[in-house]
Simulated scan of single mutants.
Amino acid sequence: MTPKQLKIILPLAILAVAIVLMMLLKQGRQPAEQREDLPTGVLVDTITSQQESLIYRVSSQGTVRPKLMTNLVSEVNGRITEVSPNFVEGGFFAAGELLVKVEQDDYLTAVKAAEANLARATAALEEERARVRVAEEEWASFTDGLAPELGLRRPQLARELANVRSAEAELERAVRDLSRTEIRAPYAGLLQSRAVNLGQFISRGTVLGNILGTDLAEIRLPLSDHDLAFMRLPGPDNPNYPAVELSAVVAGQLQQWQGKLVRTEGVLDERSRVIYAVVQVEDPYQLQRPGDSPLRFGRFVQANIEGIASGAVFRVPRNLLRPGNQLLLVDADNKLEFRTVQVQRTDERYAYISAGLSDGEHLAVSALPNPLAGMQVRLGRVNGEWQEVDSTSQTAQAGD
């Protein structure tokens, strides 16, 4: 074959091979997969509104303090000869327990001297009474007339009687001073601070220490006018004391105690414009019930006060409430709707809706960047559970 013939045949052969390969590739190609159109609209999680009746809880906070707090003060002079083992900072003691004893020698001597003085006065009174009887008999033997007071020694008798009463008072004072050498606890409590010790000389008016009563603890809780609208304070027309639940984190664990609201201080604070309610807790250190966690003085606690019944309201998470008291709803056509509602009360977690909602309506809980009224959406989770949607919708949600 000549070169000239080769130049003509070779391009034709290459073109024929290309045509054959193109036909083979066309026959082996699979048809394109047909996909159904995905539904339009973003998935929105919702919760359904449900009307309920509940009892409001009013929240506040305060510091635990003792109801009774006393400075122990000496009423006598002398040297301290005895100190109770419980007379230490943080020590507990019972009512009437001896805490400090002062040297008694001088006071015992004073009691003896007062007793001797009373004995002398009593003897002088008896002697004067005998003289009065003798004077009355002598006067009667001479005349039947009225005897003068001085002749019957009545003034002398009154003087001796006054001496006896004065001696009795001196003895009572001496005995009282002797009893004051034993300084006892006026009530059950604990010692907060101590200012004296064994062997120290003290005088009348010396502060020995500061004690706190452990029978009752009190917590002052600030309440605003808005809070007062949802609770009933105790008073002449309401003898019931609202229950109060106190809580605090102690050693990393949440502890709770029960108390009752017993009174208010009755005067608004001029700076904060709040009124203080007082909650009492019995046996805060759990001395009668060992094993329970004590409610120590000085601890800051949260308080939930039992309030009034709400009637029929809708309780929704507070973060769903938009400016202007609006909620974002999904209507029956799966379109977004902004609804203005009447809010009766809000707290840290919930808003309580009294009007503007009905049972079973869908409240949007998903975070939508730019929601518009009438926007088409699809229901995703309702009350935390997936709705029955097709597989493509779930795949699209998973891809998101």
Rank of each mutant, 00 (worst) to 15 (best):
M1D: 04
Q5P: 09
A18V: 11
R29M: 00
Q30S: 15
E36W: 08
P39L: 14
P39N: 09
T46F: 09
Q50W: 07
Y56G: 04
V58C: 10
G62V: 03
G62P: 11
M69I: 05
N71M: 06
R79C: 10
I80E: 08
L98D: 10
V100Q: 13
Q104I: 09
A119T: 11
A123L: 00
E126Q: 08
R129N: 15
R129D: 15
D144G: 15
L146D: 00
P148T: 07
L150N: 04
G151D: 09
A174V: 06
A174K: 07
V175C: 01
R184E: 08
R184T: 09
S193Y: 05
R194D: 08
V196W: 10
S203G: 04
G205Y: 07
L208F: 13
G209L: 14
E218T: 14
L221S: 13
D227H: 10
D227Q: 15
F230L: 12
P236L: 05
D237I: 04
D237G: 10
L246T: 00
L254K: 10
W257I: 07
G259W: 09
V262Q: 07
E265M: 15
V267D: 00
E270A: 14
V274I: 06
Q286A: 14
Q288L: 14
D292Y: 03
V301N: 13
E306I: 07
V313R: 01
N325K: 04
Q326A: 02
F338G: 03
V341L: 06
V341Y: 00
Q342T: 12
V343T: 09
D347K: 04
R349W: 04
A351I: 12
S358D: 05
N370I: 13
G380C: 02
R381N: 03
V382K: 02
E385F: 03
S391R: 00
S393C: 01
T395G: 02
A396F: 07
Q397C: 07
A398G: 00
